[in-house]
Write a protein that binds this DNA or RNA. Structure first.
Lengths: 241, 241
DNA sequence: CGAAGTTTTGATCAAATTCAAGAGTAGTGG
DNA sequence: CCACTACTCTTGAATTTGATCAAAACTTCG
């Protein structure tokens, strides 16, 4: 787990270039140092334990969050996992003063909490932040569409393969080494993200392991042994009639 | 089908308020009359026949489109349907000069084609348009997440119920009467949107009809007979353990 | 009317869900 | 440090559901 005491200049918004399979690129910081210190002034630092809810669907929304450290699970109604959020990710988008989804700490989490009114004031003064926001929204949209593509797959093994490739890509984009794929969330969260039951996910893992496509050092560390086979499984086009 | 010869002041971007179940609200126009005439000057009007491709995944992107009339299907790799686009919807978002998905006319379509360079020039001059774009992106994001929620459902009948409620909601938000739900796209597109086969979708329709939850005047016109039953089916929370 | 395309229906098969029990992993406190 | 407990994950067997393949009914359109 990364060093929690790392120095930061303030909130950070990273955006990852769009996913062109096979061409991972590093995400870059959208905010200037000035913007970050500006935001840091109005932000407070908050901590959450693993499993703790950060906010619930429908709660009055008074702030957005920016992850310093840890992993957050974004949930829709009915415990569906919409996305996993990492360092630098921004979450807590609200509609009409209420959060439109729930958020839960998948690991222990440290985050900036940025009060909405203050954020709004700064946004009004800094036209540049608008553009950043657009870039960020585009990225979220791409990820949501990719998630939909994953969910549309019919076989659990295909979904898992797509998930692993996505996680590896995001990991690379974050600048972390990717010899192994690190899966901080637990199996049931992954199952909820893939839209399958825990049992089906477990079987899918076993299938990939027994076919020697992946191996697992432990529950949170996966290694890809046969990338071609994984690609073939994950390629949506090859799984159509 | 709406009147194709309706007068328009130029491109229109509508945004629908977020979907709070049971509280449909009308979408409103984001662009001012000035902005619309400004855009109209640089836009050309294009027509597509039903089934015709508007652009393919990876094509060089030179313009965005704004639907005047008709329905467009947005496709991802492998013929997956990402969304159905209606009058006033904007599409053709590109990454690095290439379209990141494909678009096909689901009915015959009339649209504004707005060249990218000209659009960019106008965007730079009009800061207000940035905000419009953000609102629009938020809406797209919400819809993509809603789609993901639908795709995560395990039973075809549940997916269909959610789809019908979504279509009804969008129809109301567009200001159209909603005594009947109008489904301009064909069954195979709906099946692709729901992530099920044509056969499974057909059976799901039959199930709902035989349970007297819906009735169909013809393939494109559905009427809800038992809204409570439909709600129960479509409610994600009730379909979880 | 006839032909091509779409949708429905049927029968079989494969896969995921469900339910239930067993193995493995923390995490706690003696 | 070990043992105990609670929790997560895996595995198994029975059942349900959707996919698949193929043929029949229905639409659409020339």
């Amino acid at each position: 787990m990364p060093d929690e005491t790392k120095r930061t200049a303030g909130p950070a918004i990273y955006a990852i270039d769009p996913w062109v399979p096979g061409k991972p690129r590093v995400r870059h910081q959208l905010l200037s140092d000035d913007e970050r210190t500006l935001l840091a002034k109005i932000a407070s630092i908050v901590r959450f334990n693993k499993g703790e809810h950060i906010y619930h669907d429908g709660d009055a929304a008074d702030a957005v969050f920016n992850i310093i450290n840890g992993v957050v699970t974004a949930l829709a109604e009915g415990e569906h996992v919409m996305s996993f959020l990492y360092q630098g990710d921004l979450f807590g988008l609200s509609e009409e003063g209420h959060y439109s989804n729930a958020a839960r700490a998948a690991t222990s989490v440290v985050a900036y909490k940025i009060p909405l009114p203050a954020l709004r004031r700064i946004l009004d003064k800094n036209a540049d932040l608008d553009v950043d926001l657009i870039v960020k929204l585009c990225e979220d949209l791409r990820l949501a569409q990719r998630h939909a593509l994953l969910l549309a797959q019919k076989k659990a093994a295909t979904k898992l393969a797509m998930f692993l490739e996505l996680q590896e890509h995001l990991q690379l984009a974050r600048g972390e080494p990717a010899l192994e794929i690190y899966l901080p969330m637990d199996r049931s969260s992954i199952a909820a993200y893939l839209g399958v039951t825990l049992a089906a996910l477990s079987r899918a893992f076993r299938t990939l392991v027994s076919k020697q496509i992946i191996s697992s050092r432990n529950r949170h560390h996966i290694k890809i042994l046969d990338r071609n086979a994984l690609n073939r499984l994950a390629d949506a086009r090859s799984n159509e009639t």
